[in-house]
């Protein structure tokens, strides 16, 4: 696999969490946090792509990933393991379900 990509070898599917329900929480005491919001979810694959992946893969930094019908399994493997300079992304950053939606979006667009 070494040096086979002729152009940009950095890949970077960049994912971060959004606030699906950012809470203006009661910050007065730690005890109030037992019901902290754990239920955040990326809305869909488009959101993940535009807020993370696109910064590298929509420009000149990483290779284009849209329009190539990349298999979802391949996308999942690269996101979780990273590749060359592209960092891996953890389930704390993108849960499995959202990653499946992202992979489907990338394959279809």
């Amino acid at each position: 696999m070494r040096k086979t990509n002729p152009v940009r070898t950095v890949t970077a599917l960049m994912l971060s969490m959004s606030v699906a329900a950012a809470m203006m929480a009661d910050i007065a005491c730690a005890a109030a946090e037992t019901n902290a919001d754990k239920g955040f979810r990326w809305r869909d694959g488009v959101e993940v792509y535009s807020k993370v992946c696109g910064y590298c893969h929509g420009g000149q930094v990483g290779p284009r990933i849209l329009g190539r019908e990349l298999p979802p399994e391949y996308i999942r493997a690269i996101v979780r393991n990273g590749s060359r300079a592209m960092p891996p992304f953890r389930p704390s950053e993108i849960d499995d379900e959202s990653l499946a939606k992202l992979a489907e979006y990338i394959q279809r667009n």
């Binding site: 070898t9 910064y55 590298c56 000149q60 930094v61 990483g62 300079a85």
Partner: peptide, 28 residues
């Protein structure tokens, strides 16, 4: 493109353009 991403950083806008550095030698 260099000026654009530097200007973005100086006003706190999102950009990951600096990661282009990693293409210089490649291999991560």
């Amino acid at each position: 493109p260099a000026f654009k991403y530097r200007a973005a950083l100086m006003r706190g806008d999102m950009t990951l353009q600096e990661f282009s550095l990693y293409n210089w030698r490649g291999g991560g």
